[in-house]
Amino acid sequence: MIDNSPIRTFIAHLVLVLGILIVAFPIYYTFVASTHSLQTILRPPLPLLPGDRFVENYSEALFGGVGRIGGVSVATLLFNTTVVALGIAIGKIIISLLSAYAIVFFRFPLRMTFFWLIFITLMLPVEVRILPTYKVMVDFGLIDTYAGLIVPLIASATATLLFRQFFLTIPGELVEAARVDGAGPWRFFWDILLPLSRTNIAALFVILFIYGWTQYLWPLLVTNRNDMNTIVIALRKMISFADADTEWHLVMVTSMLAIVPPILVVVLMQRWFVRGLVDTEK
């Protein structure tokens, strides 16, 4: 290791601490705000330390039913968001595993056509086909349903490509050994392929869970009823900057509750997440 001079190391730490301040401060300050009363928040500057209203604010938001979004409790919103995030993550993983398995381990007519059909969806994000997709949802009666929030988002070229790439690294001899050992396609899938894909699945799960949790445009379109909102959409509805009657302390609590679950997932599963992120984009 070269260039280890104490001054340089000190500068490096200094820059990093500054970076952390920028990165973490908005989140920390939201937490601080969530523990103060509305009156304190409305009279800036806000103190840098948490206040004494933690219990009151959080219990009011969780169980009280927040006024601006039609009396829906934050617990309902959290439940909706969890269902959506899990549904998208698990659904995507399952259908991508299956299609990648078919494309890599079988030879059949139209195989490459299917591969390209899936691949090209990379180029068709929701944003470029908003209206017609919305119309499909209406025609299927999927507005304000969990299926409507989840199903259209689980077709993913990225996950399929990742699994395909990983499957291609599995030596052919392993498949042959399994066949000689009496394993058919399903047994091979369950006994060998799935266990070998564990880390990939874990990594992808983190990324897709975040993806599902942070969706905005899609839930905005397909939910009208307040009790079907995800927490991100509900937050947007709670805020009115022009009005003075935004209940900021509750908004801050809701923000915290919207931020903490995905942060926990990312931090606790950091090892898989970092690997998965860097791998997915290869």
């Binding site: 990093l16 970076g19 952390i20 990165v23 973490a24 908005p26 989140i27 300050y29 939201t30 705000a33 975040i210 949790w213 942070t214 969706q215 905005y216 991100v232 937050l235 947007r236 805020i239 900057f241 900021w248 908004v251 801050m252 923000s255 919207a258 931020i259 995905p262 942060i263 997932v265 990312v266 931090v267 950091q270 997440f273 970092v274």
Partner: peptide, 22 residues
Amino acid sequence: YRTLMIWPYAVAPAIAGMLWLF
């Protein structure tokens, strides 16, 4: 440092916007 640095990834863009607006 890395652990603290990856937090914003988990924050929805809309919420990021709201935090900054706050």
